[in-house]
């Protein structure tokens, strides 16, 4: 049983050692608010591990387990199947993993869970590098972004997680951003009401790793949506639904200028990135018309 030393805000403790300006608290609070107390969390190591507790100290009021980086989807599948075997078909198993635990290391177990269509919700909060261990580049790091392992800017582009997820033909998948909390809550609610393997990919800018003042987290996330660096979309029953069209599609100048990690990107890189963003959005638009 949980002993309360403080009054939680929603289902989350009010004081958590996440960085100044990090929106992961907001993601946890809104996800757990929508999911309700009948939820089990699976959290791999990463920034989200702040929420899975340290020694006897817990940070969330719902039960959870901290697994390993590579098997969070497998652990969640096991828990969900255990519940179903006991006749419990109401408890939702939610994985909240970072981009390293999803796009790099945990991709095989997520792929297996999606293939078997396990009854889990997989949420990836994407800060586009291994922020918790000191900003190492992940396969979610975009082109031209500087990290400690790609100091001159990443030479290649990021993996397209949502396309990988859609290729598994899951019942529900979506991308969301911390810039639009209502949209995020609506997508989590929709995922809650669907059965099967559901995946939500949430962009969460990182003031420490991306190099911008902590006050600008939401502004950076909004700029990413405006230039098409982050496309808001939903995938449901084989059909793609795109969000509002980005106002400045393919013009990431403002988005790049906000962050120190893109300070090495010149005209050429910006033009290349812009062309890629336009091309990707047009491809998704064509898919949405099918």
């Amino acid at each position: 049983m949980l002993t309360y030393q403080v009054q939680p805000k929603g289902a989350v403790s009010p004081g958590i050692n996440t960085c100044q300006g990090c929106m992961i608290d907001v993601i946890f609070r809104n996800v757990l608010d929508v999911m309700g107390p009948d939820t089990v969390l699976v959290i791999p190591p990463g920034c989200a591990a702040q929420f899975s507790g340290c020694g006897p100290e817990a940070s969330v009021t719902v039960p959870g387990i901290q697994g390993n980086l590579e098997n969070s989807a497998a652990i969640a599948s096991g828990i969900a199947n255990g519940f179903r075997h006991q006749g419990n078909d109401h408890t939702q198993v939610v994985v909240i993993a970072g981009d390293g635990g999803t796009v790099d290391i945990g991709l095989q177990s997520l792929s297996g869970a999606m293939e078997r269509n396990e009854d889990i919700i997989y949420i990836c909060y994407d800060n586009e590098a291994y922020m918790n261990t000191g900003v190492q580049g992940s396969s979610s790091t975009p082109f031209a972004a500087s990290t400690t392992t790609t100091p001159a800017g990443k030479p290649v582009n990021a993996k397209d997680l949502i396309s990988i997820v859609m290729a598994h033909r899951v019942p529900y998948a979506a991308t969301a951003s911390v810039a639009d909390i209502f949209d995020l809550r609506r997508k989590v609610q929709k995922a809650k009401e669907t059965k099967g393997c559901r995946v939500i990919h949430i962009m969460s800018p990182c003031p420490t790793g991306w190099g911008y003042p902590s006050a600008k987290t939401v502004e950076v996330a909004r700029e990413a949506v405006r230039c098409g660096a982050w496309v808001l979309m939903e995938y449901e029953n084989g059909a793609i639904k795109l969000g509002r069209k980005p106002e400045e599609l393919g013009q990431p100048q403002k988005y790049f200028a906000l962050q120190k990690r893109f300070c090495g990107a010149g005209e050429e890189e910006i033009a290349k990135m812009g062309a890629f963003l336009t091309e990707r959005y047009e491809y998704l638009e064509k898919l949405a018309q099918l």
């Binding site: 049983m1 949980l2 002993t3 030393q5 507790g53 006897p56 100290e57 940070s59 419990n88």
Partner: peptide, 30 residues
């Protein structure tokens, strides 16, 4: 609240490994 459905779970359970059971908050205001 947790819904009340019959479940065949063992009455005794062993906790393996560390278990967080006290909800605390860091004084992040400092």
């Amino acid at each position: 609240m947790q819904q009340n459905t019959p479940m065949n779970t063992p009455s005794k359970r062993r906790v393996l490994g560390p278990c967080s059971h006290v909800l605390v908050a860091a004084n992040t205001g400092s």
